[in-house]
Amino acid sequence: MQAFKHYQAAHCENGVTVGLLKQVGLEQITEPLAFGIGSGLFYIEIPFLKLQSGPAISFRTFPGNIFKRTCKAFDVKLVTKKYRDEVKAMSELDELLAKGISVGSQVGVFHLTYYPKAYRFHFNAHNLIVFGKEGNDYLVSDPVMEDTTTLSQQALRKVRFAKGVLAPKGHIYYPTSIGVVTQDKLIAAIRSGIKRNCRDMLRIPASFIGTSGINYTAKNIRKWKDKLGDRKAALYLGQIVRMQEEIGTGGGGFRYLYAAFLEEAAAITGNDDLLLVSEKMTKAGDMWRDSAVQMAGIYKGRLSAQSDYNHSAAILNEISDLEKEAFRQLDKIKI
């Protein structure tokens, strides 16, 4: 094991994946590679489910997938544990830290003492790395932050046992060993990450998932003004933008991240066709941001006509077309 090095990332799970895998010697891993190999890009609007009384939308794959898939691609042996007993959950963590093992931990952000209050909602799929203990304080590497921080014993226990949807139940995980990483294995990891991502964005037969899921949301947006009234419809749009752009959730940002992955993949595999798709993903990222600006016009109260909602929806339809085209093209590239 090497000394732990903090790694800041656009998304917490990518950052934890990179931080932990570098520690077992996977020097080549970067945030874009982890995101691409873990097939992180996604779109889903979960029908009938409301989060904080708004639509439940995610721009990334399900929590835990990126880490699991990346580990699998490099034959990383993993230990993962959940607990009922809070005392045991803390003492086992102490034992691991005493052995010099850095540990990934799923936490809820509501009681996360170092978070600004504005970000503290009941969101339980945040990830951080605990890499040491000094006195009563745990040394914490939270990938969204520029520097490391600390949590008291009491505070860490509270966030590890946050309650609600996706309650972490003390969930911890850490790699113990890694297979030999050759250039071929790296290329195979990239290939399977891309194939799986094409499947997720193009071929899951549900209208609310992948590139067709973006159209599903567009269709809903056209109905919101009539169905919900101006105030609530505007709040719903605000929620889309928060899910899309807020720290660590990132729709537009994730498209840029995937474009960065394709660029790295092109350099590793020597296949420049990937750069063409990278350009399209960059364009998709730009369009997600344009759509956020347009939606902001509505939730800030500057715009409120049905035509403004239609405009928002039309931008999403265009994004859906573009991402469909990009993934179809990607699907055909032989690596």
Binding site: Q8, A10, E31, P32, Q52, A118, E146, A234, L235, G238, Q239, V241, R242, E245, E246, Y256, A259, A260, E263, E264, R289, A292, V293, A296, Y299, K300
Partner: peptide
């Protein structure tokens, strides 16, 4: 070429969070 940079925030996001 892609590179990681740092952002202090974006007003469009801030307005959405303030609205929430």
């Amino acid at each position: 070429k892609y590179e990681a940079g740092l952002s202090t925030g974006w007003s469009v996001k801030k307005d959405a969070l303030d609205g929430a």
